[in-house]
């Protein structure tokens, strides 16, 4: 399974998930093992934020704890940061637009 060759700072909630969650804040520039591949973080990964465990094509479901939490709006590569810049709700289309402005 993925978790054995994935950095322990990343939490994989259920087998089959295509994202993992940071157990704690991880600094930008840190290199993490993600499913056996080294990934250098382009930006800090906050606690509870997500990283892709495999390549995810635009339109594919994002699966966390076995449940779909939205859909990729762009191609996402293994190790990419996953948030509202590349994922949209299937339920409430304006979530991204509302949340994009800080």
């Amino acid at each position: 399974m993925a978790s054995s060759d994935t950095d322990p700072r990343l939490l994989v909630l259920a087998p089959g998930d295509n994202i993992a969650v940071a157990r704690l804040e991880i600094a930008a520039g840190t290199t993490l093992q993600v499913v056996g591949r080294p990934v250098m973080l382009q930006r800090a990964l906050g606690f509870g934020h997500k990283i892709a465990l495999r390549d995810i094509a635009a339109g594919e479901r994002i699966v966390k704890y076995g449940a779909p939490i939205g859909r990729a709006t762009a191609d996402i590569a293994l190790g990419d940061y996953v948030h509202n810049h590349n994922v949209a709700s299937d339920y409430m289309p304006n979530t991204v637009a509302v949340e994009a402005a800080p």
């Binding site: 940071a22 966390k64 449940a67 939490i69 339920y91 979530t95 800080p102």
Partner: peptide
């Protein structure tokens, strides 16, 4: 149902919050 603080905490969608 979905507040800006939720996104800061890493939650991307209402589905993820409800999850």
């Amino acid at each position: 149902s979905f507040a800006p603080g939720n996104a800061d905490g890493g939650l991307t969608t209402i589905e993820e919050k409800s999850l």
